[in-house]
Design a protein around this nucleic acid. Structure first.
Length: 828
RNA sequence: GCCGAAGUGGCGGAACGGCAGACGCGGCGGUCUCAAAAACCGUUGGGGGUCAUUCCCCAUGUGGGUUCGAGUCCCACCUUCGGCACCA
């Protein structure tokens, strides 16, 4: 029971006490399986997914900020008549578990499952409508069995392959990383911040580049411009021409890619990346020592922290020349590390006059810098910096005089027509490197047999179980490599001795399909129960942070498209709509961190102000996509608001009520306020404007609190108005919503009620206040019937004292009427 | 450097091209109390004039522009925050 207070009227009133109601209702909802959903419903389905948490062990305020408003939105959709799937699970594989195992001697499985248990309990205090029957935990065999199954499908369809190449390796995490996980100018590890090094390793990759073009197409999804831009930028499509530079007196050629075929006549040198395979073949003996030294230095350079922003563009002449196929000129060939192995052909034509980098390089080595695209007001003098804008073609043979933009196409056509080169599209995106040299991940289901080669583990032998008794020595190789029982096996094809692949999969593999598993987590005939999958997929709305824009969100799109082509799915995109919430900051407006001491612990507020206040406050801070600073006073304000709603519904009406002069009018006014509020709240919910939605409920509550002092409370409209308030509050604050609904004598549960609908007629104003402006400044106001004619309103406006004061002695030039809003009188 | 977002009271933030500052926090004044807290009521952008209701001026990062009217649209700039990193 809550605290009892004496009201002025002498009645006993019960105060709002979240501690007394929140647990009660959560238990009841769980007992009644109120939020369990199934595909057998005649309501339209709606799959709302909020990004799953990593099993860090503590549900922090960021999780609340992501999930509580999401839950409110899901509940709103449910009340609007949808059959809403709103699941929750855990991203449970990954490094922290393994690091904890190494540091504290706890097994990653135990560490992870303990954390899951704790987080699940914390999540439950939120009072969200998660369907816990559909929970998935990615580190459990009945989940990763299917992660492995997907790997096999990719392998069978030629979308997974093994390749030896220089890859990014984090020396602290002791594993290779995908390109997406390497950040910043110093190329550091996304997780621990250590600069990565290059290692030459055999790794498994997925052919994401096959889908580069399709991944640029966002026409089937409603995703934020920001994410689309980031993915587009990441995929990095560029159109150009690829052609060969011929090496005289040999049958060797250097393929180069350029996006500026219009500048091809300005080439004065060629550059190979240090790792380019032709370097050895083309370097003359005299230059070999210097070239080797440069290559060694370049390789080491990536291992050293590269701090300088203005790196010198250096290189070494290899002693050989190449021929420009357009004009037959011989140009020297260099190796230089400003040309990258991983992009284009790893070799370029050097056009110093029209490329900043080539310009620097040519200056350093005294190479000629001929102008082939004249700037508009060019005086014929040498350039002092590269000119990269369009201009007029010069020194370019038959193409002289054309604009460089036209010449781009003409030269490309010429090259294609003469078999010199071909138009090519290059992408910056790489294939997805999924091998990790760590223990705590799904083992890659591959066996290497001396006789049969690379053999996929047959599907009926999945899962390839992680052995429990592995040593977690951080060696840079997978701990599985040192587990003999795991490593040595027999070949599934010939039965002879064989070795297992000991690397595990990138955890982004697990999160690429978890949304599918939620539809049927217990299903054991495949990753997805066909009936459930057909009904629920794809995800209608996905919300979460933007930090995965070029990782998870790109991988899962690729994964879906690949599954479609493999016949597993019949749609193109995993999530039709995406919305990114912002970041919640500390009270000092800084990112929350233990070292700053500004961390807010949600559990503390759940036990003091209650989960409902926590939820509503996080929604009230400001626009959800912008995030913002936490403010403890702010949540207290929300608590006061909920207490006032409580008192409004629960406290008895005053014994003496203020009389209402015109009851019909007062009822009509109340109805109007109610219907306008329903309209506003509904619109705001739909547009994720939770802050103004709650502001509207507060205003509505304030109105009702005043009205409660009057005889209006005897009207049937009053009851209707209170019910609407509770119904509209229920998605945001489900516990108090349920409690008040019950206390109003309404049938359980408020969360199974229909969302109130507004009536446009009843929401209509019968009087509007129109501002009277003179030359754009407000000088008076008039109340008019919204149906009044323009002439009437203008006449009234002109007659107001405020307008008269400013019109006097001047000439009225023009009068503008914005219906129902304002009149502007223009005078001179 | 390239791409993107944002600059509004003491604070978080509201504002279909139409009354800037909704709602909340904080502040101030009051009611209640022996007192305090809580709660409740009132008030609260800055400046000026007035005994005073009233009235006037200035205010949405800066400077221009479009418009009867601009926080909102256009141009330039400044600042902050994100993303990318020699991408040929």
């Amino acid at each position: 029971m809550g605290a009892l207070l004496f009201t002025p009227g002498g009645n006993m009133a019960e105060a709002y006490s979240p501690q007394d109601i929140e647990r009660k209702w959560r238990d009841r909802w769980a007992e009644d399986r109120l939020y369990n959903v199934s595909p057998t419903s005649d309501r339209p389905k709606y799959y709302y997914l909020t990004m799953l948490p990593y099993t860090s062990g503590d549900l922090h305020i960021g999780h609340w900020y992501a999930m509580a408003p999401a839950d409110a939105k899901a509940r709103f959709l449910r009340m609007q008549g949808y059959n809403v799937l709103f699941p929750m699970g855990f991203d449970a594989f990954g490094l922290p578990a393994e690091n904890a195992a190494i540091k504290r001697g706890i097994h990653p499985m135990k560490w992870t499952l303990d954390n899951v248990a704790r987080m699940r309990e914390q999540l439950k205090t939120m009072g969200a409508m998660f369907d816990w029957d559909r929970e998935m935990v990615s580190c459990l065999p009945d989940y990763y069995r299917w992660t492995q199954w997907f790997f096999l499908q990719f392998y069978k369809h030629g979308l997974a392959y093994r390749d030896r190449s220089p890859v990014d390796f984090c020396p602290v995490c002791n594993t290779t990383l995908a390109r997406e996980q390497v950040w910043g100018e110093d190329r550091h590890c996304e997780r621990c911040g250590t600069p990565v090094v290059k290692r030459d390793l055999e790794q498994w990759l997925f052919r994401m580049t096959n889908y580069a073009e399709e991944l640029l197409d966002f026409s089937k999804i409603e995703w934020p411009e920001r994410v689309r831009a980031m993915q587009t930028n990441w995929i990095g499509r560029s159109e150009g021409v690829q052609f060969d530079l011929v090496i005289p007196d040999s049958n060797l050629k250097i393929p180069v890619f350029t996006t500026r075929p219009d500048t091809v006549f300005g080439m004065t040198f060629a550059v190979l990346a240090p790792e380019h395979e032709l370097v050895d073949l083309l370097t003359i003996n005299d230059r070999a020592a210097e070239v080797d030294q440069y290559r060694v230095q370049a390789a080491r350079q990536s291992e050293v922290e590269r701090l300088s922003t203005e790196r010198e563009r250096d290189g070494v002449f290899i002693g050989t020349y190449a021929v420009n196929p357009m004009n037959g000129e011989r140009v020297p060939i260099f190796v230089a590390d400003y040309v990258l192995t991983g992009y284009g052909t790893g070799a370029i034509m050097g056009v110093p006059a029209h490329d900043t980098r080539d310009f620097d390089f040519a200056q350093r080595y005294g190479l000629p810098i001929p102008v082939v695209i004249a700037p508009p007001d060019w005086d014929g003098k040498p350039l002092t910096e590269a000119y990269v804008e369009p201009g007029t073609m010069v020194n370019s043979g038959q193409f002289d005089g054309l604009s460089s933009t036209d010449a781009w196409d003409r030269i490309a056509e010429y090259m294609e027509g003469h078999g010199i080169g071909k138009r090519t599209i290059n992408y910056r995106v790489h294939d997805w490197l999924i091998s990790r040299q760590r223990y705590w991940g799904a083992p890659i289901p591959i066996v290497y047999c001396e006789k049969c080669g690379t053999v996929p583990v047959p599907e009926d032998q999945l899962p390839v179980l992680l052995p429990e008794d592995a040593e977690f020595l951080p060696t840079g190789e997978s701990p599985l490599r040192y587990h003999e029982g795991f490593r040595y096996t027999t070949c599934p094809t010939c039965g002879g001795p064989a070795e297992r692949e000991t690397d595990t999969m990138d955890t982004f593999m697990c999160s690429s399909w978890y949304h599918m598993r939620y539809t049927s987590p217990g299903y054991d005939q495949g990753p997805i129960d066909p009936v459930e999958g057909k009904y629920w997929l794809p995800v209608d709305l996905y919300t979460g942070g933007i930090e995965h824009a070029t990782m998870h969100l790109l991988y899962t799109r690729f994964f879906t498209k690949a599954c479609r082509d493999m016949g597993i799915l019949d749609f193109d995109e995993p999530m039709l709509r995406l919305y990114n919430q912002g970041i919640i900051l500390g009270e000092d407006n800084e990112k929350m961190s233990k070292s700053r001491g500004n961390v807010v612990n949600p559990d503390d507020f759940v036990s003091s102000t209650g989960a409902d206040s926590m939820r509503a406050y996080l929604m009230f801070i400001g626009p959800w996509d912008e995030g913002g600073p936490w403010n403890t006073r702010g949540i207290e304000g929300i608590y006061r608001f909920l207490s006032r709603v409580w008192a409004l519904v629960v406290d008895p009406t005053p014994e003496t009520l203020e009389p209402v002069a015109d009851m019909a009018r007062a009822e009509r006014d109340l109805q109007r306020v109610m219907h306008k509020t329903i309209r506003k709240v509904t619109d705001d919910f739909e547009a994720f404007r939770f802050n103004t939605m709650l502001a509207a409920l507060m205003e509505y509550n304030n109105y009702l609190v005043k009205a409660k002092q009057t005889a209006l409370t005897r009207s049937p409209v009053w009851q209707e108005a209170l019910e609407a308030l509770v119904l509209m509050l229920a998605p945001s604050c489900p516990h108090i919503g349920e409690e008040l609904w019950e206390r109003m004598g309404k049938p359980y549960s408020v969360h199974q009620q229909e969302w109130p609908v507004w009536n446009e007629e009843l929401a209509k104003d019968d009087v509007v206040t129109v501002a009277v402006q003179v030359n754009g400044r407000v000088r008076d106001r008039i109340d008019v019937d919204p149906e009044s004619s323009e002439d009437e309103v203008q006449a009234l406006a002109l007659a107001t004292p405020g307008a008269q004061r400013h019109i006097e002695g001047k000439q009225v030039v023009k009068v503008i009427y914005a219906p129902g809003r304002l009149v502007n009188i223009v005078v001179r």
